[in-house]
Amino acid sequence: MKEYVFYKLFGKYYIDYSIASATGLCNIYDMKWNKQSLDVVGINEERLSSLVPATYIVKNLKSEYAYYMNIDSKTPFVIGASDGCLSNLGVNAIKPGNAAVTIGTSGTIRIMSDKPKCDEKERVFSYVLTENHYVVGGAVNNGGVALRWFIDNFASGKVEMAKKLSIDIYDYVIEKASEVPAGSLELLFLPYILGERAPYWNANAKGAFFGININHKREHFIRAVLEGIIFWVYNVGKALEETTGKINTIYATGGFARSDLWVQILADVFDKKVLIADSHESSSFGAYILALYLLGIINKMDDALKMVSLTKEYKPSDTNHKVYEDMFKVFQCLYESIKQYF
Rank of each mutant, 00 (worst) to 15 (best):
262 W>L: 09
216 H>D: 07
107 G>N: 11
195 G>S: 09
277 A>P: 15
71 I>H: 02
297 I>G: 04
25 L>S: 09
41 V>D: 12
94 I>Y: 11
47 R>K: 12
232 W>Y: 07
242 E>D: 15
66 A>K: 00
109 I>M: 04
342 F>S: 03
271 D>C: 07
236 V>Q: 09
274 V>M: 04
91 V>A: 00
75 T>K: 14
137 G>D: 07
333 C>Q: 13
151 I>M: 10
127 Y>I: 06
256 F>A: 09
40 V>Y: 13
188 L>Y: 06
267 A>H: 06
257 A>F: 06
292 L>N: 10
65 Y>Q: 02
136 V>C: 06
17 Y>N: 01
146 A>N: 08
245 G>Y: 01
95 K>T: 00
194 L>G: 00
29 Y>P: 02
104 G>C: 05
45 E>I: 05
306 K>T: 07
43 I>H: 13
55 T>L: 08
208 A>D: 05
93 A>N: 01
251 Y>T: 04
245 G>V: 11
302 D>K: 12
167 I>P: 01
63 S>Q: 14
319 T>C: 03
189 F>L: 07
277 A>M: 04
164 K>E: 11
181 P>H: 00
87 S>I: 00
255 G>H: 05
91 V>R: 07
104 G>P: 09
50 S>T: 15
233 V>R: 02
78 V>N: 07
263 V>N: 01
273 K>C: 10
125 F>K: 06
131 E>H: 15
213 N>I: 05
11 G>V: 03
210 F>C: 12
60 N>H: 10
74 K>T: 09
312 K>I: 11
207 G>M: 01
2 K>E: 10
229 I>P: 02
90 G>M: 03
197 R>N: 04
289 I>D: 07
95 K>R: 08
106 S>L: 14
298 I>H: 04
66 A>Q: 04
77 F>E: 01
13 Y>H: 10
192 Y>W: 14
210 F>T: 09
64 E>G: 01
297 I>W: 09
68 Y>L: 12
260 D>G: 02
241 E>A: 00
338 I>R: 06
337 S>K: 11
93 A>G: 03
167 I>T: 11
287 A>H: 11
117 K>W: 03
115 K>W: 00
274 V>P: 05
174 I>P: 07
1 M>Y: 13
224 A>W: 14
141 N>H: 13
292 L>E: 12
114 D>W: 13
156 S>N: 14
179 E>L: 13
251 Y>A: 09
76 P>I: 10
10 F>R: 02
177 A>N: 12
226 L>G: 00
328 F>Y: 15
262 W>H: 05
184 S>A: 15
276 I>L: 14
20 A>K: 07
152 D>P: 07
223 R>W: 12
256 F>Q: 08
136 V>N: 03
71 I>E: 05
34 N>M: 06
241 E>W: 03
154 F>G: 10
272 K>Q: 06
300 K>Y: 04
13 Y>V: 00
41 V>L: 12
309 S>I: 15
148 R>K: 15
321 H>T: 10
174 I>G: 13
128 V>A: 08
217 K>M: 06
160 E>Y: 15
114 D>C: 02
305 L>D: 12
93 A>P: 00
184 S>L: 10
60 N>K: 15
168 D>P: 06
170 Y>C: 14
249 T>D: 11
293 Y>R: 07
37 S>R: 11
312 K>C: 07
339 K>A: 03
57 I>C: 10
254 G>W: 00
270 F>N: 09
254 G>H: 01
264 Q>Y: 05
248 N>V: 04
138 G>Q: 10
268 D>K: 11
77 F>Q: 02
